[in-house]
């Protein structure tokens, strides 16, 4: 039978991950992604402080 209309995770679920612990826990790709995120965060955050500093003095 065809599996048209059923997501792949149902028709061919991911093979069970190896039973043992992967001691290395190496996720270099994700590490790159989260640092890109952090950089974007830092830039946006401080740009907003800069924008704020252009206003009238308010207190």
């Amino acid at each position: 039978m065809s599996f048209h209309g059923v997501p792949q995770g149902v028709t061919s679920p991911p093979a069970p991950a190896s039973a043992g612990e992967d001691e290395s826990h190496k996720t270099p790709g994700t590490l790159v992604l989260v640092f890109v995120f952090l950089a974007a965060f830092v830039v946006y955050y401080f740009v907003n402080w800069k924008l704020l500093s252009f206003l009238w003095r308010i207190g």
């Binding site: 991911p14 992967d22 790709g29 989260v34």
Partner: peptide, 23 residues
């Protein structure tokens, strides 16, 4: 969570043999 969710996906994929390079 923003780290552990993608990292869990990465590690899961790596355990299944997708180990080349970063991505």
């Amino acid at each position: 969570h923003g780290f552990t969710v993608p990292a869990g996906m990465e590690l899961g994929q790596r355990l299944r043999g997708y180990t080349k390079g970063l991505f």
